[in-house]
Write a protein that binds this DNA or RNA. Structure first.
Length: 504
RNA sequence: GUCCCCGUCGUCCAGUGGUUAGGACAUCGCCCUUUCACGGCGGUAACACGGGUUCGAAUCCCGUCGGGGACGCCA
């Protein structure tokens, strides 16, 4: 099937980012956000922020506000979005479910979609069999050709169903990736994607295409992980008879080991970077460095502007708007190199005047709010104010690495302790960040794994504070923040695992 | 396993048929310095491999290998 011609070149440029409120705002969102922002600003276009909250099983209520705050923190602003309004709203997909249902009906009516009555369990069982048999896991299309009588019978029964895209057989779909050129997928490799879930909510694929069209998006600039689902989207545009946007798939940010960036191996929460004392300009600059796009200064520029050679790597958002060139983007996935980010941040910090530097400290890591929340944790155990630093160092440290003699419980082996710490991490990830919930979920874990309360909390205390004596643990964790607490635990686990492997 | 994408120093980028393959971070050495940083100077370090095309390939084509992504009623 041939895709329709791309959107008119004359259409006013409109781009969007569409984060999902499932947890902390992600550096990848800031990265793609920056790229979209630059693209729009360079072309006098509009930049839209849309919240994709169609998965209520993963929905985190506090997440949306954190996304707004973090994106504003790095310096991005949007022209339309849930919090600023705009002519194509609502910009929260959960408020648009009627629109998606209508559109699913259109596809049902014009034969581009069909109802599928299998249960999630049945599908899961099928998938497992296929994986076991080493064949690509795919929907078998069983309900693709249900007779009208069967469909009516199921509906009369009140059986829940999903709506699936009817991908034409024995064909292929080709689309143009603006950076890669034409990409073709044989339909044997394109599954009959679920468009509408049995709970009435759309999946990403339907909501995304419908919204991008209704919101007049001209350029879809998103991460590379979406390439393989793009044929589904192209098919959807065609099924609706809509014009295609341009597709730009950006390289995926990577961990040091080159795998897709993940919280296990790298801090990915923007909240973490903010609370740890990274400057937003440095973060934005660093993200702009990844994937190319910024031309390095020519020799003439270096000479004429008296630039230090390293200053080719240092630039502001304004300079990015001026010089960033999407055609220059290199396609290899860039490693998110914390070492270089820290160097960049240091460059920015050192460039501040002493007064500005002091102000930076006072507005972040030494803010009144932070100190005010730490103070009550030490007041009852302090003798002279000079002990404050000794008691609270871990609140201000970038790295806490307790030796084994501190963190390893006397009656526990290295392996079981690490395994338990790993369980603690999982537990804390799922916990809402209040002392009571943290305490009860941790205690439940301890009971299940036969770890005493003392061992349980002492291990965590040692890992987080680097010491076996500290201010109250739970309150400290609250003040230190979920993002940094979890990251500290993750880094501890990674380092221990690495050392354990080296010993083998 | 199947499909798709990608492949220049350890890392991030330059380089688009002719370069001693360049810069930054990291690393190493020297200088500065009471220390540590900062700063300055210098060094180590890469075109994955094999075939083509060409007078000439990092640059173009093919294959191999390697890495990554996707394969959910997640996004």
């Amino acid at each position: 099937m041939n895709p329709l011609p791309p959107a008119q070149d004359t259409a006013p440029i409109r781009v969007r980012i569409a984060p999902s409120p499932t947890g902390d705002p992600h550096v990848g969102t800031a990265y793609i956000g920056l790229l979209n922002y630059i693209y729009a600003r360079q072309r006098s276009g509009q930049f839209v922020l849309r919240i994709e909250d169609t998965d209520r099983t993963r929905f985190v209520p506090t997440s949306e506000q954190m996304i707004f705050d973090s994106l504003r923190w790095v310096g991005l602003t949007w022209d339309e979005g849930p919090d600023v309004g705009g002519p194509y709203g609502p910009y929260r997909q959960s408020e648009r479910t009627a629109i998606y249902r209508e559109h699913a009906e259109i596809l049902l009516a014009n034969g581009h979609a069909y109802r599928s009555f299998e249960t999630a369990d049945e599908l899961e069982a099928m998938r497992r069999q296929q994986i076991a048999a080493k064949v690509p896991p795919r929907y078998n299309g069983a309900h693709r050709h249900l007779t009208q009588a069967q469909i009516d019978a199921y509906l009369a029964e009140g059986r829940p169903y999903t709506v699936r895209l009817k991908v034409p057989e024995n064909q292929s779909t080709t689309f143009t990736d603006e950076l890669r050129g034409p990409i073709t997928f044989d339909h044997n490799n394109v599954d009959d994607q679920v468009l509408l879930k049995s709970d009435g909510f759309p999946t990403y694929h339907l909501a995304n295409v419908v919204d991008d069209h209704l919101m007049r998006i001209t350029d879809v600039i998103r991460a590379e992980e979406w390439i393989s689902s793009t044929p589904k989207h192209v098919l959807l545009y065609a099924a609706f008879g809509w014009e295609l946007p341009r597709f730009w798939h950006m390289p995926l940010l990577r961990n040091v080991d080159k795998s897709k960036i993940s919280k296990r191996k790298n801090p990915v929460s923007l909240v973490f970077y903010q609370q740890s004392g990274y400057l937003p300009q440095a973060m934005l600059n660093f993200l702009g460095l990844l994937g190319g796009g910024m031309a390095q200064p020519t020799e003439q520029e270096i000479v004429s502007k008296g630039l230090n050679t390293k200053e080719g790597d240092i630039f502001s958002l304004g300079e990015m708007l001026e010089k960033f060139d999407f055609r220059r983007i290199s396609l290899g996935g860039p490693v998110f190199d914390l070492v270089k980010l820290k160097w960049l941040n240091g460059e920015y910090l050192r460039k501040l005047t002493p007064e500005e530097f002091f102000a930076a400290l006072r507005s972040s890591i030494l803010s009144d709010n932070y100190l005010r929340s730490i103070a009550p944790l030490v007041q009852s155990r302090i003798e002279i104010l000079g002990q404050f630093g000794d008691m609270t160092g871990f609140f201000f440290a970038d790295n806490v690495l307790p030796p084994e003699s501190v963190w390893l419980p006397k009656k526990r082996s290295f392996e079981e302790s690490l395994a338990f710490a790993s369980e603690q991490l999982t537990t804390l990830e799922a916990a809402s960040w209040e002392p009571d919930t943290i305490e009860s979920s941790l205690k439940a874990l301890g009971e299940a794994k036969q770890w005493s309360v003392k061992e349980n909390f002492m291990l965590l205390r040692a890992v987080l504070t680097g010491s076996t004596s500290s201010p109250p643990l739970l309150e400290s964790m609250i003040v230190f923040g979920k993002a940094r607490t979890l990251d500290r635990l993750r880094r501890f686990l990674e380092i221990q695992k690495k050392q354990a492997n080296q010993r083998k």
